[in-house]
């Protein structure tokens, strides 16, 4: 009875998956939504492979790319895929292999790991696919070792973080104690943002009394910042490597009755911080134009396919966002 139920469940699941997949694709556990624009001969097919679609940032990126494709439907086809969570590296490698099997012309990818993806991307490039790296930069050392050149199209996170911190220090005095809330320790972006914050802070003579990770998460940042203000009651500012953590920091300050006394900055300019920016509870953040990030990569891939541009790194804008 029980085993029959399970068999039935598995069988129906397989049916659903097969119905979603294209006939050419090997059957997989389909957690990423697969969308294929109607096939027209001659148009280049571009695959966009992203990290977690559960993350607002990547969802915005995907929606931006879809909107661009719809507006330029005569120029290219888009296959957009994401993985379940940001650390599911092996699933992302599998997706690259599937896209190769589907014979796409270009691959625009936000790698879940800056080292582990290099080898499969080399195979893609060897197979004649144009590969563009967006969002999370592939490791220079590993690329050089494999003799590989993959153009990176994306913002300079370090510069963005530096801009935010430079704006913040204008409102502080040299020697003021400040703290940093870092992103996930294994993420390239997190390291770059931390470095950017540190550069501007040291240049202005601030004292960094604490620097801890909250893994990009609001609730963890809330806990970490609560601890920071207890241990360093004299703290003047908290610099958060993303806006979710800045929200957690603001909540911790509110609970401790220190809102306004300790200044908060974030990064990403997500919709949830707009009110806080207006009220001045978060004084600044950085906008790296998430909706355009994938589009920049796609446009660049189209240019290379059309022979209009040679592959090279390309920097996209990051803007400081202040209280309106």
């Amino acid at each position: 009875m029980l085993s029959r139920f399970i068999t039935l469940a598995v069988a129906s699941l397989m049916l659903v998956i097969c119905a979603c997949e294209r006939a050419t694709a090997p059957p997989t556990e389909g957690e990423g939504a697969v969308s294929v624009a109607p096939e027209v001969a001659g148009k280049p097919r571009i695959a966009l492979i992203m990290k977690s679609l559960a993350n607002e940032f990547f969802l915005t990126m995907e929606n931006g790319a879809r909107a661009h494709q719809q507006a330029h439907a005569d120029q290219y086809e888009l296959i957009a895929q994401g993985i379940k969570d940001e650390t599911d590296v092996s699933r992302q490698i599998q997706l690259v292999e599937q896209m190769m099997a589907q014979g796409v012309n270009a691959l625009v990818i936000a790698p879940a790991d800056s080292k582990a993806l290099v080898s499969v991307l080399k195979r893609a490039q060897d197979a004649g696919i144009v590969v563009i790296n967006i969002d999370n930069k592939l490791d220079e050392g590993v690329l050089a070792e494999r003799g590989l050149k993959i153009p990176f199209v994306g913002p300079d996170n370090r510069k963005g973080a530096r801009q935010v911190a430079e704006y913040l220090v204008q409102q502080l005095k040299p020697g003021d104690p400040v703290a940093i809330v870092e992103g996930a320790p294994n993420a390239y972006n997190a390291m770059q943002r931390k470095l950017g914050f540190e550069e501007a802070l040291t240049a202005a003579g601030m004292k960094i009394v604490s620097s801890q990770t909250a893994n990009w998460e609001m609730a963890q940042a809330n806990q970490v910042v609560s601890g920071m203000i207890t241990e360093h009651p004299e703290l003047k500012a908290v610099l958060c490597a993303n806006d979710s953590m800045a929200l957690g920091a603001v909540a911790a300050l509110r609970a401790a009755g220190k809102l306004g006394e300790v200044k908060v900055v974030g990064f990403d300019n997500i919709s949830a911080v707009q009110d806080l920016l207006k009220q001045g509870e978060i004084i600044a953040t950085a906008d790296q134009h998430a909706d355009q990030l994938a589009v920049f990569g796609i446009k660049f891939a189209l240019d290379i396919l059309a022979g209009k541009q040679a592959p090279a790194d390309k920097e996209t804008p990051v803007d400081l966002v202040r209280k309106p």
């Binding site: 998460e217 609001m218 909540a251």
Partner: peptide
């Protein structure tokens, strides 16, 4: 209570 503390609802909460 979680939302009240953070002032926001996060779909990634509680992992």
């Amino acid at each position: 209570i979680h939302c009240a503390r953070l002032g926001a609802a996060d779909p990634n909460a509680g992992i």
